[in-house]
Nucleic acid binder design. Sequence first.
DNA 1: ACTATATTTCGTTAAATAACGAAATGAGAT
DNA 2: ATCTCATTTCGTTATTTAACGAAATATAGT
Lengths: 115, 115
Amino acid sequence: MLNEKIKLFKALSDPNRLRILKMLQYKPLCVCEVTSLLNLATSTVSKHLHILKEAGFIIEKKDGKWVYYFINNNPDDKRVTRILMELDFWISDNQQIVSDLRKIEDLDKQLACTP
Amino acid sequence: MLNEKIKLFKALSDPNRLRILKMLQYKPLCVCEVTSLLNLATSTVSKHLHILKEAGFIIEKKDGKWVYYFINNNPDDKRVTRILMELDFWISDNQQIVSDLRKIEDLDKQLACTP
DNA sequence: ACTATATTTCGTTAAATAACGAAATGAGAT
DNA sequence: ATCTCATTTCGTTATTTAACGAAATATAGT
């Protein structure tokens, strides 16, 4: 069904989700880290991650209290793999993305994930 | 701006627009031909074509009473070109698409575009 | 100028989406 | 078992989107 196929494109049709994908391509992050980087409510970020997971772009791994999200590099679904490969090309040189990646380097998990 | 970039993905996030793109990859069509193939209101189809045009996927050429739409094969925007190249791969073997293409072969413009 | 036909624009409605805060859940630590 | 904290789910609100029909626009032929 075409409605199933467009789930991939819908998942890519939101700027915050593109930012998340690019962040996770840089390195795996837990929900609170992503939340801190995007400056959105935790529930909103959780929803975005769910959508990306349903589309097959990312996978989750629990680690203690935290849920870490990883780019799905399993080549089972070749459509996902190819899109992830093209991602860099489609949104290269974006100011927001570049700034996000810089912030990840300075990110202090301790600081980001404690109340 | 990321909002500009996601226009491409939003344009792909609708089953009828994917059907249109695949049809136009087979051959250029006028609005009433597309309308007849999709079984939607003319105004709806016109809107979809406008969105695809704004995203850069297709171009329009007027020919008498009719407005024909073509796949944009001009490689100015490499993002558009690459996505169009990948399209086949992403939505290959779809029942709806296959059926659409079969219908195009039998399509009688005279019949489709007269009241 | 008038008519016929193709397309676009406009106004409306129903459904989908993104955001938030509050409440519920789950999993370690005490 | 209880407490704490990270995450998800729920309910709500504002915005966006897809669809339609009717009215407006454009172009060809009479």
